[in-house]
């Protein structure tokens, strides 16, 4: 009996996760992008008007190279060990930010962040 309740809770957590993921993936987003380090916004770009360029962002001697091209943004180079941020590719799906944990960097759609903060508060 107790086990059934616990399995039920597991399934509930799983379903909440699935629904939450779907909401995040399909959330609408604008064109404004924030590049955030340690919770502070470093740059804000409106991707629909920004020209193609590359930026170098430093953290404690390590760098991430961020590329903006054809209204899209991604990390092209990073000297962190895991390279997760590079493999995440272009920032496009809803509100899921590109994150580089070792270098405390995240790239995210700006308007989505405000919505989220409003929900949390």
């Amino acid at each position: 009996m107790k086990n059934k309740v616990l399995i039920g809770i597991c399934i509930a957590i799983f379903l909440i996760g699935v629904i939450g993921s779907a909401l995040v993936l399909f959330a609408p987003h604008g064109t404004k992008v924030n590049i955030v380090q340690d919770g502070a916004v470093l740059y804000t770009f409106d991707l629909s008007v920004t020209e193609d360029q590359t930026l170098e962002i430093e953290y404690n001697g390590r760098t991430n190279i961020v590329q903006i091209e054809n209204g899209k943004i991604r990390v092209v180079e990073a000297d962190c060990p895991d390279k997760t941020c590079i493999r995440m590719g272009w920032l496009e799906t809803g509100s899921l930010p590109i994150v580089c944990l070792p270098n405390h960097l995240s790239i995210e759609f700006a308007d989505e962040r405000e919505d989220l903060d409003a929900v949390i508060k």
Binding site: V24, V36, D38, G39, S95, P97, V99, S106, D117
Partner: peptide
């Protein structure tokens, strides 16, 4: 470490 954005 990163701020509330990562909660997504």
């Amino acid at each position: 470490i990163m701020g509330t954005g990562v909660i997504v």
